[in-house]
């Protein structure tokens, strides 16, 4: 069966049918891949897939107000789901559809906001591209060039430093991200969050002590703020000018107070769960 006169290199190689990798690819696709079990050549791919599933930012949920309006109009009517009962209701429905058309306006407004849902998790990713992805970003979307000096003192053996340097608010973000990923993330998110944290803490055994020693960033956050719900400006403004006054909850325009109050628990839950799959 293994006749040495038939050199391996004559065999056709179809990368997608290479059996040893097929399992790893399936694991990546279903979110069950463990980074340490991912072949080295697939790690940049794994990083892309993790980045793809990063928590939503404010802009991505800017259409909520319009969606809620439609929901109020159309849903939850016993007997006649989705059918307005009166001409008045019909005209209200037209208005709400018009408001949906302006979802892009709301999206633009959201872009002006700085708050990032899933705060700490997002902070752990923001501004910290995996190396391969950063090079790609540099080529295609003119992102800042990767600087070796800012790539971070990744411990020998890990190969790729992910995550911001872990002091100050970034440290809080890393701890927060890890906690959040533990509770809600999929395997790869947990792994990335943990790797970042281990790098920052200086070893897996140091993590608990490290996070215990990290102060909450800034006295400006409202008391009783829930982990992973809203980011304080310090969490998300890596080197950017804060656009929200400190101490004020950063609710974006177009996603106003009614929304924030009306679905406090729902939105919170949604944010927490919308980051990836189990």
């Amino acid at each position: 069966m293994t006749d040495p006169s038939v050199p391996d290199r004559d065999m056709p190689t179809f990368p997608w049918s290479t059996q040893p990798q097929a399992g790893a690819l399936d694991a990546l696709l279903s979110g069950h891949a463990k980074p340490e079990e991912t072949p080295a050549e697939l790690r940049p791919v794994a990083e892309v897939l993790v980045a793809l599933q990063a928590p939503p930012d404010q802009r991505e949920v800017a259409g909520w107000e319009a969606a809620l309006t439609v929901y109020r109009e159309l849903a939850g009517r016993p007997g006649t789901p989705g059918r307005p009962r009166s001409p008045r209701a019909r005209s209200r429905r037209r208005r709400s559809i018009a408001s949906l058309l302006s979802a892009r306006v709301a999206a633009a407004a959201g872009a002006a906001a700085i708050a990032v849902l899933g705060g700490g998790v997002a902070a752990a990713y923001t501004g910290s591209l995996p190396a391969a992805l950063q090079r790609f970003a540099h080529v295609v979307i003119a992102a800042p060039r990767v600087h070796e000096s800012t790539a971070g003192p990744a411990p020998a053996g890990t190969g790729h430093g992910v995550g911001p340097s872990a002091d100050g608010s970034a440290a809080y973000g890393l701890c927060n991200a890890y906690q959040h990923a533990e509770e809600h993330g999929n395997a790869s998110q947990r792994a990335v969050a943990f790797r970042n944290l281990v790098n920052a803490a200086g070893g897996a055994g140091q993590v608990a002590a490290y996070c215990a020693s990290v102060p909450h960033p800034g006295p400006t956050s409202p008391p009783g703020r829930r982990v992973g719900q809203t980011a304080s400006p310090a969490d998300t403004n890596h080197g950017r000018k804060p656009t929200a006054p400190p101490g004020k909850p950063t609710t974006p325009p177009g996603n106003g107070n009614g929304n924030g109050n009306g679905n406090g628990n729902g939105g919170g839950n949604g944010n927490g769960n919308g980051h990836g799959k189990k």
């Binding site: 969606a67 929901y71 849903a75 949604g270 919308g274």
Partner: peptide, 21 residues
Amino acid sequence: QQGDEAAFARLWHDGQPALLR
């Protein structure tokens, strides 16, 4: 399905980011 806005908020916030991407 019964008109609970908080529940719809959860469905929407769970689905919308993935949908948009």
